[in-house]
């Protein structure tokens, strides 16, 4: 999944729920359909909730991988 073209990035490692998803959602709203957003987030609540909320809004989670320590990166394709 490394060959996905990333159109935008956002770092939400400093946010707490539900601001994690609020920031992600706002970023996705600025993008167009088919574009890919890379989200940097922390393990635990953000990693559990953000991908699920994103999918509930119809977007596609393309990839989730550990960056380092408890920091993860997820790739989201905007619907």
């Amino acid at each position: 999944m490394e060959n996905n073209k990333v159109n935008a990035q956002i770092d939400i490692t400093k946010e707490i729920c539900p601001m994690t998803f609020v920031k992600t959602k706002l970023k996705l709203e600025t993008m167009s359909s088919g574009q890919v957003l890379e989200v940097t987030l922390r393990e635990g609540e953000p990693l559990i909730n953000v991908p699920r909320s994103v999918e509930q809004e119809g977007h596609k989670v393309l990839d989730i991988h550990r960056e380092e320590g408890d920091v993860f990166k997820i790739l989201i394709e905007r619907c």
Binding site: C17, P18, T20, F21, N49, V50, R52, S53, Q56
Partner: peptide, 9 residues
């Protein structure tokens, strides 16, 4: 069960 961030909305 299905808790998501939208629940805070």
């Amino acid at each position: 069960m299905v808790p998501t961030c939208e629940e805070a909305g």
